[in-house]
Amino acid sequence: MGPNLISNYSEAAAMILFVIGFSNLLLQQNLIKKIIGLNVMDSAVYLFLTLKGYIRGRVAPIITDGVQSVESYVNPIPAGLVLTGIVVSVSVSALMLSLTVQLYKRFHTLNLDEISTRLRREEQ
């Protein structure tokens, strides 16, 4: 396991980032911190995908200097997936932020626990 971990250190970093983002999204009480966690988590997956799509010594698949050999370029699909993923994650973050704004306007706090308590108090 040790040598593998060292040679794949960038993937390991992506996974550590994923766990950091994931636990922030789940455990933080502050809504903004949750959204930051969400973005860290998504970016970690994109980092992972990008790493998997990159081959050292090759360039993006745009023909330069007439070189047409497949061996000179990387597969464009992982990068395409990352772009699609970024679009998705931006829209989800926007939705979460707009929800946060609405909640803050109504309850004047960003703490989800506090919001639940105030909601319960309103009901009674």
């Binding site: 983002g21 999204l25 789940l26 998504d42 997956v45 989800v92 609405q102 909640l103 989800l112 919001i115």
Partner: peptide
Amino acid sequence: YVAAVRYMIMSLVGSGLLLLGISM
């Protein structure tokens, strides 16, 4: 709003795991 935010958080946790799974 609170229900939506809770739904979103759980759903996003789910989609994060799904995306990682698909990438792997």
